[in-house]
Design a protein around this nucleic acid. Structure first.
Length: 190
DNA sequence: GGTGGTTTCGTGT
DNA sequence: ACACGAAACCACC
């Protein structure tokens, strides 16, 4: 079994039925929560988590969410994917957090590749590009990974520059470092 | 060990 | 058609 303490089992791709007409066919549950890495806004459909952001201001974050899914139905609270996600942040054993995502084929492949990196481990953008069969596309891989809509469960914090530096992170490099440190510490238990 | 110029490629405009 | 990155590589210092 892969030593990945994040119980994300896979990516379900959104179809036109989900995202046509500004996601009019999508129903989302959303919730705010405090996690060990900071305050989040998470949104999930019945099929999986669709968005997870580290946030500063609740109302601004909710507005961003509505801008991203302009015509989706949104209800606060509830849903197994949100419950499981919050449990996972506590390090508790929880059910799988599936991911329900829309993206280009290249982006989806890049996000899937991240799920192969074990907890506490890192991989360079160039190495990921090679795994995707595009050995020269390291920079495009960086752009694709940076567009990840679900922080932590698509473990984009495990992608780092080949130089050994920490690299950039969409929600702040402090959070990236904290995630990797926590994963390394937790992995001692296994 | 650091800096700068060049290569390279998927996206949004 | 063009410009922009969560990069890598190589030369040079």
């Amino acid at each position: 079994m892969r030593s990945n303490c994040i119980p994300a089992v896979g990516i379900v791709e959104m179809t036109p039925a989900d995202y046509a007409d500004g996601y009019a066919g999508l129903s989302l549950r959303y919730e705010f929560a405090e996690t060990r890495f900071g305050r989040i806004l998470i949104a999930a459909s019945a099929k999986g988590a669709a968005r997870l952001d580290f946030i500063k201001d609740d109302s601004a974050a909710l507005e961003n969410l509505r801008n991203f899914f302009p015509n989706a139905k949104m209800l606060r609270g509830g849903g197994v994917h949100i419950e499981n996600a919050l449990a996972a942040f506590e390090g508790a054993s929880a059910g799988p957090v599936k991911l329900h995502l829309k993206g280009s084929a290249f982006r989806l492949a890049a996000w899937k590749a991240l799920l192969d990196i074990p907890a506490g481990k890192t991989e360079s953008y160039g190495s990921i590009a090679r795994r995707l069969g595009c050995p020269k596309a390291c920079r495009a891989v960086g752009t694709a990974i940076g567009a990840n809509p679900v922080a932590y469960f698509v473990p984009c914090h495990r992608a780092v520059p080949a130089t050994g530096a920490l690299g950039k992170y969409r929600w702040g490099s402090d959070i990236k470092r904290a995630m990797l440190d926590w994963e390394k510490a937790t992995e001692q238990l296994f």
